[in-house]
Design a protein around this nucleic acid. Structure first.
Lengths: 253, 253
DNA sequence: CATAAGAATGACCTTAAGTCATGAAAGGAT
DNA sequence: ATCCTTTCATGACTTAAGGTCATTCTTATG
């Protein structure tokens, strides 16, 4: 299966100035754009390279000249989709100031809003995670490791600095746990809309989303949050606030 | 994509005695056996139905007559592989008596032993999870939901009865968390051997496995374990025992 | 304007999944 | 034992989609 990573190899260092191929790059962009739609709408296997070419009014051979293979094309599509997502620390400053777990909440809540604005990149990401081939999947994981597109590592460091994340675990372990559970939880939220029946036991996730998010955050808090004081209490306070948002003065029992 | 679930529909209730098709079933079994090897060794796409038929010395058409499609064949292979795994509560009685989290430890430790005995079903399971197609993946998830082949639901109930699992979360949520994280953690352990580079940040998981397992269990314990007393202390005690296994009398500081 | 490098083409190839008409074998019922 | 029906097996055939490549076209540049 050639072409996944074989085209666009790292350019030799002596190559000066970057080759600058405006025509080619523009076309690559257009191909990726149309291919993204097709993959998202039809799935990896059902999407036909021929259809993509026909839609663009170009020859099928051109696509292979640019991307080497269907896998190679999808990989580019995937990378672009994933790069279009925000990093954890891109949350607004006031959210960041409320702490690690509030940032998580922010993104979980926003996920479905963003989904309704533009579901296409989410679908692509889903395909990359579950819908292609182990060979491609390995390539994708190399990419995720190299780029850390959600900035999980930085985010965990941020949590460590604020002493909201426990320091007695390996950072790698925390990052993995966070990646795994966030990915799956988001998948569950998403696929309720995009792909009903794709993930187990998500049916009820659809309703009571806020409550689920809170439960999930509490769970994460216990799993990787710093023990004792500040963080736990902060989230707990926030939780009560959400239940009775108007009772600013009445509380303080 | 016909045939995934279309053959072998649920038999009508009025059908008496079960049809009993010994010849057919034996052949199905042989096909599944050979197909399992091919899928495991070559991956879903690289495995050729023609090769499977040739190895069996039968016509390719026969396979399609039995299973409808390559997807249908894989689905049967997958189901058989997953059914061959143990359920959580199949752990030995003395392990069960040591509690919920000790059962988890038992299976995590055994995973790699069993892997060396027979890696084939693990590879098949991995393919089902990540290496085929979203359409098939949905079918697989329906199956996993319907059969609960690892007995996660029963196992969580077991933990709840023993008051080792927290009662303030939805059972469904706990089951999901457990499924997700155990699956991924096992994948990480496995793929270090089966498929290097498939999952992120597993490189170090390979070394210090025991320590990782302990960290992982501690994390799970905090995430879904009952708060406070018994369970937490039990695992903590066990942890110390593992560090200094011979100092039965010397401890008790 | 000549030339070379890169880009585009589309006819062609390959391969593998999937189909189906035909015939053989097995399992009764008379 | 002989029909007859149902199930199974066969392998030649079809379809279709990914992939190749020699040729032609376009653009940039001296």
């Amino acid at each position: 299966m050639p072409g996944i990573a074989s085209n666009r190899v790292a350019p030799p260092i002596y190559e000066r100035q970057a080759p600058a191929r405006p025509r080619s790059d523009a076309k690559r962009g257009r191909i990726i754009e149309v291919a993204t739609r097709y993959f998202a709408e039809q799935g990896y296997h059902a999407a036909r390279v021929g259809d993509i070419a026909a839609t663009l009014g170009i020859a099928k051979g051109s696509i292979f000249q640019h991307f080497g293979s269907k896998d190679g094309l999808f990989f580019e599509v995937y990378k672009q989709a994933v790069r279009s997502f925000s990093k954890y620390l891109d949350a607004p400053i006031e959210v960041r100031q409320s702490g690690f777990f509030e940032v998580l909440r922010y993104w979980l809540v926003r996920t479905e809003h963003m989904l309704h604005e533009d579901w296409i990149p989410y679908r692509i990401s889903l395909l990359g995670n579950y819908g292609t081939d182990l060979v491609l999947r390995r390539e994708i994981n190399r990419f995720l490791m190299a780029e850390d597109p959600y900035g999980t590592v930085d985010f965990v460091r941020f949590g460590l600095q604020r002493r909201e994340v426990r320091a007695d675990m390996d950072v790698e372990m925390i990052v993995s746990i966070l990646d795994w559970t966030m990915e799956r939880f988001q998948d569950a939220l998403l696929t309720a809309a995009l792909d009903p029946g794709l993930f187990r036991r998500q049916s009820e996730l659809a309703e009571k989303k806020e409550a689920r998010i809170q439960q999930f955050l509490d769970m994460l808090q216990r799993a990787i949050g710093a023990p004792g004081e500040s963080a736990a209490r902060r989230v707990e306070r926030r939780r009560r606030d959400r239940r009775r948002p108007a009772s600013k003065a009445a509380a303080l029992s």
